[in-house]
Design a protein around this nucleic acid. Sequence first.
DNA 1: TAACGGAACTTGCGAAATACAAGTGGCATG
DNA 2: CATGCCACTTGTATTTCGCAAGTTCCGTTA
Lengths: 136, 136
Amino acid sequence: MKANNPRFRSHCPINVTQELVGDRWSLLIIRDILFARKTHYGEFLTSAERISTNILADRLEKLERHGILSKTRETENRSRYRYVLTQKGQDLLPMLLEMIIWGARHDPETAAPAEFVEQLTQHRADFMRQVLAAVE
Amino acid sequence: MKANNPRFRSHCPINVTQELVGDRWSLLIIRDILFARKTHYGEFLTSAERISTNILADRLEKLERHGILSKTRETENRSRYRYVLTQKGQDLLPMLLEMIIWGARHDPETAAPAEFVEQLTQHRADFMRQVLAAVE
DNA sequence: TAACGGAACTTGCGAAATACAAGTGGCATG
DNA sequence: CATGCCACTTGTATTTCGCAAGTTCCGTTA
């Protein structure tokens, strides 16, 4: 019912982005795909923030339904699924980079290595190409 | 108790940013300050997404506690408060711009005028200066 | 100085989202 | 055909959220 007809609080682009990926978990899943090259359900469960399994299932379904990622069976092991970002999902990378920059700057205990942040601020285009090349 | 000692799920910068401003409302408040030049409690209540008053009070307190905005009494009318962004809050602008770009690109019903999006993509530095100059 | 009004919250309660623990079903391997 | 791994699903307690109504502080008007 609401699957094919999502109603947004407003069509302000900030609000739409917030509603689609602004929950507590979606961006962490996308982060794992982009920066940790995770592709399987079980891998997402092992991240430091400890997502619970029912929430993970729900978010993966939601992200797939919104065209942000796609799910395919593996050919080698047909009991396994592979989650990969669509173009729409990859387009979130610039926003994630800004989140990294802000979080690293304002969290005194940040886990982001300074050279990593420097790399993505000084050579952003190259950095993005590298990240996206790695998830193909 | 938790006021002075926030414990994050992790110190991944993406996660920290998500935990500080990734709830359903905080970024809309910051958007209103930056792009609609709102500064008063009552103005935030009138935005299209209809935040409820107890949630607004909670978010303003939280954003102030985390140093993202500051609250001052007005000198003219001392029953009124003024909410303004700190440097830390202003530093969220680049992320908001990426949210605008993504939301505008992927929402077919986006409310963002094409020329507005073009302006902030083609002349980002100037655009940011203008926005920040207006909230001083 | 007492009444009024507006701005900024606070309180109460039902509804929804989330966390945690346990259980289920499909597929490959021995 | 038993075992195990992987990807979920189910149940339930806790937390957060949304909506409506009430309260407090302060300046204004009479």
